[in-house]
């Protein structure tokens, strides 16, 4: 026989799913929030996002080529772009370019490539970058411009965010909760905060898309949001003047962005559904503890990074339900 046959083990077909399909799928899911950020913060959001994405791609390329001396480039797999967008979404829209570039270097260089690149990093790279900046540049990282100043970037006027008002209430300012925007404003994103986190609506659209395309499962986002809602709800019932309502909590700050896009990062989250729920509940719990009782007004980033560290342990103890464990009817 002239032509030779290929012999390999089964299966002989593949779903045609790829790393790219998943990475760019998440990027697409981020588009509504991206559009809202341009609408809310104008040129500032554009500069921050573009700088972050370009810097992340550049560092991924430069480090793999010149330091790791790898032949094939990994920048086309979409993971660096995703890290860039997520980092930008966690920054204020008036952050200077040089700080963003440092954040991107830490995210890609230390957060990701130090550990061996895609699939090997124990912590979410974008959050490593963000938390590094938060600790290094606390002033620049905690002043948020008011929405609607479309032409202004560095010199945009800033004000206290809903989260700062909530923190003030916890610290004893009895009038501060009454200054919060309405729940509806916080839901659609008319309040303010970091570039990509303000519109719960836009982020939820992204969640819907990712669930539809089966990029992620519901376990992590739902368990985080439910935990935050229940925990803050109990505190609100205990003392509504000191503790903001659960609705205000889940629609402000980084909870939506964190629950939907940061905590669900494939590499750093658990593998079994049971593990995902343990992880999600712990993130929700830690976030509320930091928000209500900690030094920082926002606790999402720290909560996710802490639970990233527990992911291997969760994977060891939370196993999927094996076939046959189910008791017969």
């Amino acid at each position: 026989m002239a032509n030779r046959l290929i012999v390999s083990m089964s299966p002989h077909v593949h779903s045609n799913d790829t790393v790219e399909r998943n990475m760019y799928g998440v990027v697409l899911a981020l588009v509504p929030a991206l559009l809202w950020s341009f609408y809310a913060y104008g040129v500032g959001a554009l500069v921050v996002t573009l700088t972050s994405v370009c810097a992340c791609i550049f560092f991924e390329w430069a480090i793999t080529k010149f330091i790791l001396k790898q032949e094939s480039s990994t920048i086309t797999d979409g993971s660096a772009i995703l890290t860039g967008i997520l980092l930008a979404f966690n920054l204020p829209s008036n952050l200077p370019v040089w700080i963003i570039v440092i954040g991107a270097l830490v995210a890609i260089g230390i957060g990701k490539l130090t550990f061996g690149g895609l699939g090997c990093n124990p912590f979410n790279p974008a959050l490593v970058g963000r938390v590094f900046l938060l600790i290094s540049f606390p002033v620049q990282m905690t002043s948020w411009p008011i929405q609607g100043q479309h032409g202004l970037y560095l010199d945009a006027e800033t004000a206290a965010t809903p989260l700062a008002l909530m923190k003030a209430a916890v610290k004893g300012d009895a009038s501060s909760l009454s200054q919060l925007p309405s729940s509806w404003e916080m839901f659609i994103g008319a309040d303010f905060g970091c570039v990509g986190e303000v519109s719960a609506l836009a982020l939820l659209l992204g969640l819907g898309y990712m669930l539809w395309k089966k990029i992620i499962t519901w376990h992590i986002p739902v368990s985080i949001l439910a935990t935050v809602f229940v925990f803050t709800g109990i505190m609100h019932l205990v003392d509504p003047i000191v503790y903001a309502s659960p609705v205000a909590h889940i629609f402000t700050g980084g909870i939506m962005l964190g629950a939907i896009f940061m905590a669900t990062d494939y590499v750093t989250s658990p593998m079994s559904h049971k593990g995902m729920i343990v992880y999600g509940v712990a993130i929700g719990f830690l976030t509320v503890v930091i928000r209500l009782f900690g030094a920082y007004p926002e606790g999402m980033s720290f909560a996710i990074l802490l639970m990233n560290a527990f992911t291997p342990l969760i994977n060891t103890y939370c196993k999927p339900k094996r076939f046959g464990e189910v008791v017969k009817k």
Binding site: I6, V19, N22, L118, G119, V267, S272, R322
Partner: peptide, 25 residues
């Protein structure tokens, strides 16, 4: 059709865990 795609690093997406009909990892 007969060629397999190039193997790449595991991104720990957990799709294999969700697909396994025996509940394995």
């Amino acid at each position: 059709e007969a060629r397999r795609g190039e193997a790449r690093p595991c991104i720990r997406c957990a799709k294999c865990v969700n697909a396994c009909p025996m509940g394995l990892e």
